[in-house]
Write a protein that binds this DNA or RNA. Sequence first.
DNA 1: CGCCTACTATAAGTATTTCTTATATTATCG
DNA 2: CGATAATATAAGAAATACTTATAGTAGGCG
Lengths: 322, 322
Amino acid sequence: MTTRPARLPFDLHVLEAFLGVCEARSMALAAKSLAMTQPAISQAIADLEQRIGVKLFDRSVRPLALTPAGELMRQRASALVSEARQIAMAIRHTSRGRLALIRAGLVDSLSRALTGPLASFLVTHADHVSVQSGLTSAHAGALLTRNLDLFIGVDDMSDVEGFDRHEIVTEPYILVLPPRHKIPRSVADLEACAEKLPLIRYSARSKTGIDIERHLRRLNIDFPQGLEFDTPFGVSDMVARGKGFAITTPICLAEAALDGSDVRTAPLPGPKLKRTLTLVSRRQELGTLPRDLTKACKSSLEASTLAPLRSAMPWLDEDFRA
Amino acid sequence: MTTRPARLPFDLHVLEAFLGVCEARSMALAAKSLAMTQPAISQAIADLEQRIGVKLFDRSVRPLALTPAGELMRQRASALVSEARQIAMAIRHTSRGRLALIRAGLVDSLSRALTGPLASFLVTHADHVSVQSGLTSAHAGALLTRNLDLFIGVDDMSDVEGFDRHEIVTEPYILVLPPRHKIPRSVADLEACAEKLPLIRYSARSKTGIDIERHLRRLNIDFPQGLEFDTPFGVSDMVARGKGFAITTPICLAEAALDGSDVRTAPLPGPKLKRTLTLVSRRQELGTLPRDLTKACKSSLEASTLAPLRSAMPWLDEDFRA
DNA sequence: CGCCTACTATAAGTATTTCTTATATTATCG
DNA sequence: CGATAATATAAGAAATACTTATAGTAGGCG
């Protein structure tokens, strides 16, 4: 006679009850919200504690307090139950060929260029589409914690396994200066320029800002701290107003969509600095959607943004295309 | 009368049964391995399918085939059940003040210096200790997929939320040359040196190798491809044999533990390049263990490695200490 | 300090779920 | 086409989860 393999000491339903108690700090209140009776909750929790061999609640105080093991359990059970709910939903809707919900992150610098095309594409594949602009680091974290299904951004999470990556575009960093300003052609010229006109910075909360600062440090260039902004518009508008110069990218500049102004653009002197925009999604969970979406975004970006940028800046690399 | 809130359409036990069928490709065989009867399995799966509203198996063929929805379910259910098992174990042992198992990753370059102290410390906190040397990128991936509980490495996963980081040491990259070789004092000297003696490289699979290559590119230095190694010993031994020079770190050099040879060391000309070694763990799951472990590692590293290195290379930065 | 209120725990019984045995149905292979 | 090995279904048994009733306990207030 075979020995029954060891079963898990809890089930999702019990964990839901446990989490209800954690939230309510009361078995009676949890019972109400879960449409069960207080003794059912009490017995379920007691049984769970007996099966796992530790106390989860301190019942000698009111309201109930979690033990350290209880706190650990709360965190991990919460994640587990949340994931289970997402599985339930994902299974149902994937099988219909449509997703119930797809949440896409889009880096700020592509917001104007791609929000429309992205949403238009996704809406043909999901009942509900959420497009969230923001910083790529936040999007990457959200993808890991399954609060996003995919994102387009500057970081491709290349050190993490289990994700697919589709490159959309690689672009160089460029100089942007106020109208009619002299163009620096060397690193030395750039440093001289900075003595008269401050560098308008991207925030260090963005990967773009970080890359630029790292680049300048490696050139041993130490521009004084001054203005910094989160958005391409903030940076570009200040340049247009003659308040300083900036290091940015053609797409960021296009994103800023300055009205009628004529900032000057030039290649960044010294070693080349580039950034790549990539679509990242979990492997195997969205079928061909990421690849198809990438194609759609490339087409749209080329027509709406890259071709005009090449016209405006003929000195951009031949490789600057989607 | 309150409406009962929507329950999850499955429980862990049913998912275990489902996964058993996936693995065995047979309900009868799954029943045997789960110590249940075949009809119990058949009914459980049928009920699951009815609750979630999709077919998971194609029963018109033998052996059973998974539908696309079934394949997605298999992947996600597998992760869920695996996580549930780990929760069960973690809760049990955390509450006893000891862990059942703790798995620590340690970057290759600290292997000799810290494997002993690390294992000695952890064995007082866990019944079973696994210390895995390797590349930090693999360790970071393993931590994310919960195949490691903590690691000490070069990447601190700073873009990912939910982790604690404790800095252990920051060290500069340095030059290492064959015995009695002339020391380059400028970037130009370094390039001239490379015309006679090749650069012995770290593999691009390591973050250290990547950082060095990126650094050289930003200096517009393009050393020809030649020898590359994964380990500090491989790189350092080749230098000792007069086969080339290397860019490395004091800790890597110490790790190489060259027998009786007398390679020359010098500051790296040009912009400074440093690396930081950090202990990374999930927030709030290991209590004070990561902080305590960090202290223990710093003490041990200072005594065993950093003090001797400062004696051997008096020109190292004052900040070069744990 | 004692009493009252509001909470949890326990006992006993009921309802629901899960499992087994017996057997019908179906896929595959020789 | 028949035999074998698989899954599905029916009916009943066993186990689990829940309810009602009530005992026991923590904390707040007078």
